[in-house]
């Protein structure tokens, strides 16, 4: 997984690309800490470049949501396509995380 973070209009936008799998757990944890500590309330994961997510990736996104919620911050998943969008749909992730298409 590769990611690039930018802050626009008091929103943090993290553009994620490649494959989000268990192997990314350390770097994603570091990213979550970074997002918890920044000033913005709304953290957006821009996922149009993400090709694949495994079940561990779904678990990590839920942990991210929880960690941010503990700091009164919102996580938004945006622009998922292909396998990522299908997994989000069958996992009914929209019930737990804001999904913005």
């Amino acid at each position: 997984m590769d990611h690039y973070t930018q802050i626009q209009n008091q929103e943090t936008i993290v553009s994620v690309s490649g494959r989000l799998t268990f192997n990314d757990h350390a770097s994603l944890r570091a990213l979550i800490r970074e997002l918890c500590d920044n000033e913005t309330k709304r953290q957006i994961f821009e996922l149009s470049g993400l090709e694949f997510v495994d079940s561990a990736g779904i678990g990590m996104l839920l942990i991210a949501r929880e960690e941010l919620a503990n700091r009164s911050k919102e996580l938004v998943l945006r622009g998922a396509t292909g396998q990522v969008k299908r997994v989000f749909t069958v996992a009914q992730l929209g019930k737990l995380i804001t999904i913005d298409d």
């Binding site: 799998t21 079940s55 561990a56």
Partner: peptide, 10 residues
Amino acid sequence: ANTDMSPQML
């Protein structure tokens, strides 16, 4: 944790 269950979900 590294056992991917996404095929089963799909």
